[in-house]
Simulated scan of single mutants.
Amino acid sequence: MRVELPSGKPAPLRVLASKTASAREAFTAARYNDLGSSLPGLLSAAEAARDAAAGQARGQANAILARAYVLASELAAKQHSDAAWVAADRALAAARASGMPIPVGEAARVLAITMRRSGNCSSAVRFLTTESDVLDPAEERTGAVRTTLLLTAAYSAGAGSDRATALALLDEADETVERRPHAPGGLFTVDATKTMAAVYRIGVLNTLGTPDEGVEIARGLNIDLMATPERRARAWTDMARMWHALGDGQEAFAALRRVEQEAAQESGGLRCGR
């Protein structure tokens, strides 16, 4: 699938970095219409800046471009658009060209989501575990990214009905979160926290067809601790799926109301990407 961008002129890297941070804020605040309006211009300017740069500046430009394409893939996944795959592929190419492990990890995660959504669950798991193996778990930032890859791999394994692998990956992610309970923020969409890991476990149990195993976890979960409206809406979506599968329409409806309160522009509700 081709994704055409408007022609753009290179902008200073500090300007592009600021605009990319603003775009991320729009995504995490679930202002998807605002993000959709700003992304084409941001991507074209970032590509122009990358093409005009050399040396260290080119690496920095590629990192910014990768992050912008990660956001484009995240948004396309929300909209159930095939453009998510193209954007994720471009994100990973730019991230690898940057030579920076954190953008590579962020891009790998969104590409794996597109793989899982297309039915290639086992391939997504293999890809994510391979990428996580090259990240240093002892270093704070790369260790946090590694945890997010493990969580996404667990969800992919669950979607592929591989219970043993899914639970093993969740346990590994839990261990890393326990060692680093206050992981730094700023990662795309998913932060490595105990609350995030618990929400993922509930989502995995839903996909495995055993939502009853998530009830006790849900009872002790404080979704308000999650940092962004987008993630809180995602968590309440998992709660709604769990209660619906268990036949509790009242709890499911209450959870869906929370989704609407947190993120009115959240599209697709029960089918959002991870």
Rank of each mutant, 00 (worst) to 15 (best):
S22V: 02
H244E: 14
E172G: 14
P40C: 00
A173F: 04
V199A: 09
A52H: 10
G268T: 00
C272H: 07
R219D: 05
T228D: 05
L35M: 02
I217Y: 13
H182S: 02
F253R: 15
P40R: 09
V134W: 04
L92Y: 07
A240S: 10
Q60S: 15
G8T: 05
R90D: 06
G214T: 02
L256D: 05
L42D: 08
E74R: 12
E213M: 04
Q56N: 15
L225S: 11
A183P: 13
G186D: 05
L16Q: 04
G186V: 03
T195N: 09
A245C: 02
L170P: 00
L16W: 11
G143S: 03
P101M: 05
R241N: 08
R2L: 10
N222L: 13
A227V: 07
T114F: 00
A17N: 10
E172H: 10
R231K: 13
G143A: 12
P229Y: 00
A77K: 09
R163F: 01
T207Q: 10
E25I: 10
A254H: 07
R90N: 14
P229S: 04
P12N: 03
S267D: 00
A21H: 06
G55W: 07
A227I: 12
A154E: 12
L150H: 05
G220K: 08
T148P: 00
R31C: 05
V70M: 01
M196T: 14
A26N: 08
G99V: 12
V70R: 01
G269W: 08
H244M: 04
S7P: 14
T189N: 10
L221K: 08
K78Y: 03
A49S: 13
G220Y: 01
I223M: 04
S7R: 12
S122W: 11
N33P: 15
G247T: 12
F253W: 10
P6H: 05
A52V: 06
S161E: 14
V15M: 06
M226W: 06
R274I: 02
D162Y: 03
R141H: 10
A11L: 13
G273S: 01
V145A: 00
A144M: 06
S118F: 02
E216Q: 13
R2M: 13
E178S: 12
D89Y: 13
N62S: 09
V199L: 01
L187S: 04
T228A: 03
A235T: 06
Q265W: 00
M242S: 00
A144H: 03
S156P: 11
A88H: 14
A54H: 14
V104P: 08
P103C: 06
A168R: 09
A72T: 03
G203N: 04
T193S: 13
A227M: 07
M226H: 13
L149T: 11
A154G: 12
R90V: 07
D238R: 07
E266W: 06
Y155D: 03
A108W: 08
P40T: 05
Y155H: 06
A57N: 07
A235C: 09
N222S: 15
S73L: 00
T207K: 15
H182A: 15
R31Q: 07
A53S: 05
Y32M: 08
W236Y: 05
G41A: 01
T189D: 03
A233E: 00
P10R: 06
N33F: 08
G249H: 09
L5N: 10
Q261T: 14
G160E: 01
H80T: 02
S123V: 06
L71S: 05
L256V: 10
R257D: 08
N120H: 04
P12C: 02
